[in-house]
């Protein structure tokens, strides 16, 4: 239990620093900005209680906001993502439920499961984030392209990280 707690605290710090100092400076032609920090929400244990999930989402988003000078923007998107995570997990649950002691990772539930699970959550997060940021519908398809490309890039990073860093 303590081990899981420490691992998650370390993970949130590393992801925020990585996002703020490296990924926020990445930009390809004004379209692609990966928001890799959502990996933290993706990898939280299945048993995480709802209030903690939302609280962590809020804290994570707000700490990104502090550095990016966008108060509330990332917090709102991350809270939204945390909110729909239990529903997505329920939808993709195996027939006999999730085995206690396992985590939502490729290692336990396979590539196809993890791909669908993270793709839906990342898309939800990015849609919320980009449309709240623009807050108008006049450039709907421009924003749409940004969402899809950025989400694809974030997903790629998330999948790669599963094979490199979180190999059991």
């Amino acid at each position: 239990m303590i081990k899981i707690l420490l691992r998650n605290i370390l993970r949130i710090i590393i992801l925020v620093l990585l996002q703020v100092f490296i990924l926020n400076n990445v930009q390809f032609s004004g379209f692609v900005n990966p928001y890799f920090y959502v990996l933290f929400i993706l990898l939280l244990p299945f048993e995480t209680p709802g209030w903690l999930l939302l609280g962590l989402g809020f804290v994570l988003g707000l700490s990104i906001d502090l550095f990016a000078n966008t108060p509330g923007l990332h917090a709102s998107a991350t809270v939204f993502m945390a909110f729909i995570r239990p529903a997505v997990l329920g939808y993709f649950a195996p027939r006999d439920g999730y085995v206690p002691g396992t985590f939502p990772r490729i290692y336990y539930y396979g590539f196809s499961w993890f791909f669908q699970y993270s793709a839906i959550l990342i898309l939800a997060h990015h849609f919320f984030l980009f449309y709240i940021e623009v807050f108008r519908l006049s450039d709907f398809f421009h924003t749409f392209t940004r969402v899809i490309l950025s989400a694809a890039f974030t997903l790629l990073l998330v999948l790669i990280s599963q094979y490199f860093i979180y190999r059991k």
């Binding site: 709802g50 939302l54 509330g72 939204f80 909110f83």
Partner: peptide, 23 residues
Amino acid sequence: HFVLLFILFETIALILVFQKNNY
């Protein structure tokens, strides 16, 4: 509590987003 907490957090976050001058 899950839904209510979500609405609470989301409201705080969106207030922050749209109150640019106060922040």
